[in-house]
């Protein structure tokens, strides 16, 4: 279009520059500081634009002297579990919701809807109790029905999932936002697709596996990445569910490093290195895969 856009383009450019500066500022400060040795840092007496030479030394310290490398592995496993559960369970459920004619559709959809509105952090107190003894609901049933007496099982079964990968991941995976995204996507597919598959001799399972799954690759990859990052950045729940450093994910480990030794002068360069260390995987992921993630989530239509 032919029109004068000079003033608005200048304004847009200024806004973008300021915005990017705001986003990058803490990251740049963290990085600059992470390149300093403790002595250099103390000598500077605060934030400077100096690029030091000690980044690798600091990294080596993090790598050998802290639990963060092991905790990074915990983060990878937990985040992968979260993303896998969220994608797989929501995929099969949404397939049922969209392509099956069943009276329960509304109820199932409603049940998943509520999990989106009440985040896990809200109910962390009682979730902890359940994960501490996952047999608790079974015990109630045993006690209420008297079955515990009859079968000799009693009603005091114990199975704690605290400090396990599944115990940390499962409650995080409950928020069923994927159902909405997949539902939106499935509804946009040609309506006759399952009919065509039926004419070709493919039943529901075959249709899901041969046709729906490959078709859904874009939203599946996007949501997987997104929930992986979401699982990675969780804090409150892993903090209470994983009490030992061995079981904690990296974000919790970093926060412990920062807050437990309050009385000492904080080793700021080391902490900043740690902060970068626990963040680089998801940030790299979002920077590289951004196009796929944004396109696949299809957030424009809600």
């Amino acid at each position: 279009m032919i029109e004068r856009t000079r003033s608005i383009d200048i304004a847009a450019r200024i806004i973008l520059i300021v915005g990017v500066a705001f986003i990058l500022a803490p990251l740049v400060i963290a990085f600059l500081t992470a390149t300093l040795s403790y002595e250099q840092f103390v000598r500077n007496g605060g934030i400077t634009l100096q690029v030091g030479t000690h980044f690798l030394d600091n990294l080596a310290y993090i790598w050998t002297e802290t639990a963060l490398p092991a905790q990074l592995w915990n983060s990878i496993v937990i985040s992968t579990l979260v993303a896998a559960i969220k994608c797989a369970f929501a995929f099969t459920a949404t397939f049922a919701l969209v392509f099956f004619d069943n009276r329960l559709n509304r109820i199932v959809f409603g049940l998943t809807l509520v999990t989106v509105m009440l985040p896990l952090e809200l109910v962390v107190i009682t979730t902890y109790q359940i994960v501490a003894n996952i047999a608790m609901p079974l015990n109630w049933i045993l006690a209420l029905t008297g079955l515990g007496e009859i079968t000799g099982l009693g009603s005091d079964l114990r199975l704690s999932l605290l400090d396990t990968y599944v115990g940390v991941a499962a409650p995080i995976a409950c928020a069923s936002t994927s159902v909405f995204i997949y539902r939106q996507f499935f509804l946009s597919l040609p309506r006759d697709l399952p009919k065509a598959a039926a004419m070709d001799g493919a039943g529901p399972w075959r249709f899901m596996w041969d046709i729906l799954l490959p078709l859904s690759w874009t939203p599946l990859v996007a949501t997987f990445m997104f929930w992986f990052i979401g699982g990675w950045t969780q804090y409150l729940w892993p903090l209470v569910a994983a009490s030992t450093p061995d079981a904690q994910p990296a974000v919790v480990g970093l926060a412990r490093l920062a807050t437990t030794e309050q009385d000492r002068i904080p080793e700021v360069p080391m902490l900043m290195t740690g902060a970068l260390f626990v963040s680089f995987i998801p940030v790299l992921l979002i920077a590289v895969m951004q196009r796929q993630i944004v396109r696949g989530l299809n957030l424009s239509e809600k």
Partner: peptide, 14 residues
């Protein structure tokens, strides 16, 4: 029987 659908219902990924 075999059928030809209104919007063809081709499998887009194949």
């Amino acid at each position: 029987c075999a059928m030809v659908f209104q919007n063809y219902a081709l499998y887009p990924h194949m």
